[in-house]
Design a protein around this nucleic acid. Sequence first.
DNA 1: GCCGATTTGTCCGTATGTATC
DNA 2: CGATACATACGGACAAATCGG
Lengths: 248, 248
Amino acid sequence: MAKSKYESIYRDLKERIEGEEYEYQTILPSENTLIKTYDCSRNTVRRALAQLAEIGYVQAINGVGVRVVYQPVDKASFVIGGIETFKESATRNKLKSTTEVVLFAEIVADARVAKRSGFKEGTELYYIQRLRKLDGKPCILDINLFDKSIVTGLTKEIASKSIYEYIENELNMEISMSKRKMTVERVTQVDSMYLSLGDSNCLAVVSSQTFNKKGLLFEYTQSRHVPEYFCFMDTAVRHKDVDLFKQV
Amino acid sequence: MAKSKYESIYRDLKERIEGEEYEYQTILPSENTLIKTYDCSRNTVRRALAQLAEIGYVQAINGVGVRVVYQPVDKASFVIGGIETFKESATRNKLKSTTEVVLFAEIVADARVAKRSGFKEGTELYYIQRLRKLDGKPCILDINLFDKSIVTGLTKEIASKSIYEYIENELNMEISMSKRKMTVERVTQVDSMYLSLGDSNCLAVVSSQTFNKKGLLFEYTQSRHVPEYFCFMDTAVRHKDVDLFKQV
DNA sequence: GCCGATTTGTCCGTATGTATC
DNA sequence: CGATACATACGGACAAATCGG
């Protein structure tokens, strides 16, 4: 499963931390110990540890050791990860999820679309709107744009199942990076037509651009979430961007 | 300024990318070239490149090179970075920002607070509520909890200026990691008392835990944002968590 | 289709610096 | 002061992917 050594060490440590074999606030075995345990070089261990630090599981303290800062969900009501995808939250809440394609079209990017999505003007695109339901309740309205020349042969049929499965398994394209923007916006007429909003007049909007392994933009998506089903987690580390912590 | 070699290389490349000396979708000079340019080892260059990849500036392609994926703000209306802090958005929009302390108290964490914040039950805390205004318009309600035994000697006076400046410059404590959770919640009575919400009945809520360099939790904060002034940016990379991309 | 050059990916060993106790 | 632990940096080796001839 694990392609690389550092990845298997990463996975092993991650599991042990999640299983609380290494508990919150305790110090992991030293790098030198881990080197012997996994029979590898210092760099390899450090790389695994660096990745654990990135996802907010551990924190290295100079001259002391590597401290576990992962907290199990129930204890502090904090979960680690990115956006909870539709499927994830569905399985976590043991709900049945369905997808309904409400619009499937082909368009050409004009200036307005280009500016918004990042595609070049004139690019041929698939334009798809999908409604995501949990236990029959419409929770997310997804608006997708796919580059027709990269994501070829898309159909309404595929869109109703899983576009990403199609991209990865059928087209054999690897996904590598995604830029996201989160805002809170007022509901539009289209929103209230499809989503069960109760009396909330706002929703959480996630706009994202996704790049493939060749660094080419192939997707722009706007997901409009009903507030009560939206939750986003993140861990920020100092070096990423110093200004992050410069709250007044 | 830059403590380490890889950091200065990182900063240099970052500036050049931002200045579009290296343009969107072009390939950076190869690692071997950069090694000669910066007179350093391959690992050092690679480390700088890895950090640029983390913030969504570049993307390495095996057998090809390192492609620039940074897009200047005006071109695609995407900004890179973390949460725009109060001060940042203020300066960016050329608005005058002020902070008003509406509550300053000392409490002891009971079971409810402990579960919510991650502090141990019985921990002595500062409990602060602050209102952030832009050009006189109240935009954010901040609710802070600080561990009294770590962040010592806090006063209302300090809270009205900058608590982080106090922590870093006076207490000489270094901040290193922060876990955040974003949700959209219905406005409460307290919210509508302080914030100018218009007719929106929801707001963006960012809950965060912050750890110092010793891996100790010293702050829990809930920031309640008026929708129109809230925007969060993020870039996700494949290895971080595979499930991120498994959208159905 | 193959080969070789280029480029990134993984891994190792070692040396030196810095912080903690 | 010395032992321990993480941080930075160097140099080398081989693998995997890509591209052009």
